[in-house]
Simulated scan of single mutants.
Amino acid sequence: MTDFPKILMVIGGLLLIIGFFMQFIGKLPGDIIFKKGDTTVFFPIVTCIVISIVLSLVFSIFGGRFK
Rank of each mutant, 00 (worst) to 15 (best):
G37N: 05
D38M: 10
S52W: 01
I45A: 10
V50A: 04
V10A: 15
F59G: 04
G19V: 03
I49R: 03
T2Y: 13
I11C: 10
I25G: 00
P5L: 05
I53E: 03
F59H: 08
M22T: 12
V46W: 01
T2L: 14
F24G: 13
K6C: 12
G37K: 04
G63A: 05
F66S: 08
K6M: 14
I45L: 12
F43T: 09
I17Y: 12
L57V: 03
M1H: 11
L57Y: 02
K6V: 14
P29D: 02
T40S: 09
I53P: 01
I25P: 00
V54P: 00
V58F: 00
G12Q: 14
T2Q: 15
I32D: 12
T47F: 03
P5M: 06
G19Q: 05
G63P: 04
P29K: 05
K6F: 13
D38Y: 08
M22V: 11
L55G: 02
F62K: 06
M1E: 15
T40G: 04
F59P: 08
I7C: 06
D38H: 08
F4C: 13
V58K: 00
I25T: 04
I51S: 08
V54H: 02
L55R: 02
K27F: 11
P44T: 05
G13E: 12
S60W: 10
V54S: 01
L57M: 07
I33Y: 08
I49S: 02
I18L: 14
